[in-house]
């Protein structure tokens, strides 16, 4: 049973990572990269490493995502002639 959950989580992580690579919108790619971290933290919890899971959930999926989004909005602020904005 456990091994199936681990396999499903791994496939979901690969899918989220692929989404992050091939997404046209940069902010959606950042969110997908955060989802990879969140799934990884569930995986760590299943592999009996709750300390690592907490670190991964808090830093990988929360703080890093926010820092990337801040950096992204800063780039949009400086590039005024960007046609996408």
């Amino acid at each position: 049973m456990n091994i199936f959950i681990v396999i499903i989580l791994g496939v979901l992580m690969l899918a989220a990572a692929g989404t992050a690579l091939y997404m046209k919108s940069l902010s959606a790619a950042v969110i997908a990269a955060g989802a990879v971290s969140l799934l990884a933290s569930v995986l760590y919890l299943l592999l009996a490493a709750p300390d690592v899971a907490m670190t991964e959930a808090a830093i990988g999926s929360a703080l890093t995502t926010v820092v990337f989004l801040y950096a992204l909005s800063r780039m949009r602020g400086t590039k005024k002639e960007d046609p996408r904005d």
Binding site: P50, T55, A58, I59, L63, V66
Partner: peptide
Amino acid sequence: YIFLHGHLTPGGGFQGGVVIATGFL
């Protein structure tokens, strides 16, 4: 709670500090 109970339950200073930072965020 996470960093005060670091010696009893999973977690510790780093995790608790990050959670506090997300609260302010």
